[in-house]
Structures are given as structure tokens and as C-alpha cells.
Amino acid sequence: MRRISALEIKKAAAELARRANFLLRRDVLAALYRAYVTEKTKRAKNILKAILDNAAIAEKEKLAICQDTGMPVVFAQVGQEVSISGDLKAAINKGVEEGYKKYCLRNSILGDPLARGKSGFSPCLIHADIVKGNKIKLTLLPKGFGCENKSQSKMFRPTADIEEVKEFIIKAVKSAGPDACPPYVVGVGIGGTADYSALLAKKALLRKISGKGSVLERELLKRINKTGIGPMGLGGANTALAVRIEKYPTHIAGLPVSVNISCHALRSASVVL
């Protein structure tokens, strides 16, 4: 058994808060740059320029890329040969909280969703998974709620045509329209159960968007960009930067599909301990 201390986990989590919120993912930056270069509409081009400038300022001046530093969602892949001295979840929560405080990110988290009241920095939402090996991989995805509010799920009939599924995904993007900071990255989860498809849709946002993607991902991207919603919803060829789909086996009686949209500031950072 390899020992990893809770203190080490806490420090790593705090550092992820800094990296995820100040440094835009390189694959996202590259996609935004490509969009800027290829965009023909003048206003859309100006907006993409502002988005690129914003990322540069955030990195240089150590400011949050977006004031909505999100609900911190943490994916913890814990190797089964690791022995943790201390409390894993407490260490992640404490570390992210310390990072959010230290780097002056936003306290957007409410202890009680109905009572509302004063907001704080924690807890995170932790998805822990047991994997092979003797390491721990932590990934922080600060998910802003402008785009999280546009999430959609649907339980299709198992005999549904794939075109119905495609239309549902495109409709979800259309209904987000200009509200959730396009150009979007569209995460899609297909299969599993209702809740699991939603998790898959979120996990899809962790995949790099630098590759070309599958045939279905490419088709959906093309159709989404044909909507002409464009950057900030003010028209243009770039409504989405990428579509990423995650699938899982499902039941003979159903076909769960979820869409989790990310704004153009798709932020995440990972570390392996």
C-alpha cells in the first residue's frame, strides 16, 4: 500500500482552485483562438477577441476568468492500492475552500438550497471512484451556474430514433440561446440511468476538445453551429466549440440522455498524487 496523507491532498486541492480559475484550459484556448481566426461576422470576431483578452488578463493579473467561480465539482479517482492517512473528502473540501479564499474567488455556495441566506466556499461536490493502481487523480471543474441552469435530461423510449436524440441535444443548445455565454462546449451523457446520464454529460466536459471528435460529435457540432446563435448570442458561425459525448450501457426499457452545457470559460485542472 502506498500512503498519501490528507495534508498532501488538501494542498493539491487548493492549488487546483488556483489553476482552474486563473488559467484557461489550453485546449479551450486553442479552440477559441481558432474560432476567432475563422469567424467572419465582425461583431462575433470582436467578442471572441474580448474572450481571448479576458483569458490573458486573468492569467497575467491572477484574476478569476469569470466571476462565477462555480460550484466546485471534484472528480477523485482513488487507486485501490492507496492508503489515505486522514479523511479524503474533508481534505478535498478544506483544500478547495482554502484555495478559493486565498485566491479571492467567489463564495457562491449556500448551505441550504431552500433557506438560501449567507453563502460560503464549501462544500464541493465530490465524485469519488475506486480505480486500479497506487495513485490518486484529482480533477476540479468549477461549474458556473449560468450554463448549469441550462442542463436538460430526458428519458427516451428505447425505440426512439437517433434523430430524436440529436434534435433534443440541439434544442437544448437553442434554448440556452444567448443566456449561458456561447460559444459553448456541449457535454452529452447517453445511457446508464437518469442520474448517471447527467453525470456522464458533466464528465464529457473533462475530455479535451482539441481532437476532431467522433462522427456523431462532429455532426452535432456542425448542426449546432448552423443555428447561427454565435458568440454572446449575437450571431456568428461559432455557437459551440465542441460537442463531447460519453456513453454507458443501459436497460432494455430505456434510453436516458442528458445535456450539460458549458460556457466558453470551460475550466478544469487535474493533478496526480
Binding site: 486573468a58 484574476l63 466571476q67 485566491y103 479571492c104 449561458a180
Partner: peptide, 22 residues
């Protein structure tokens, strides 16, 4: 329509973009 981040030391304001108007 804006809720900024915490104010970093030595700065006037933190990150402060618009939130969804609807």
C-alpha cells in the same frame, strides 16, 4: 446584474462580469 469575486489585495475589484438577466 453582477456578483463579483472577492476583492484581491491591492485591487479595486475582483472579476466582475454580467450574470444571466432573465
Amino acid at each position: 446584474y453582477c456578483g463579483p469575486t472577492q476583492r484581491p489585495k491591492g485591487r479595486i475589484i475582483g472579476s466582475c462580469g454580467p450574470t444571466t438577466s432573465s
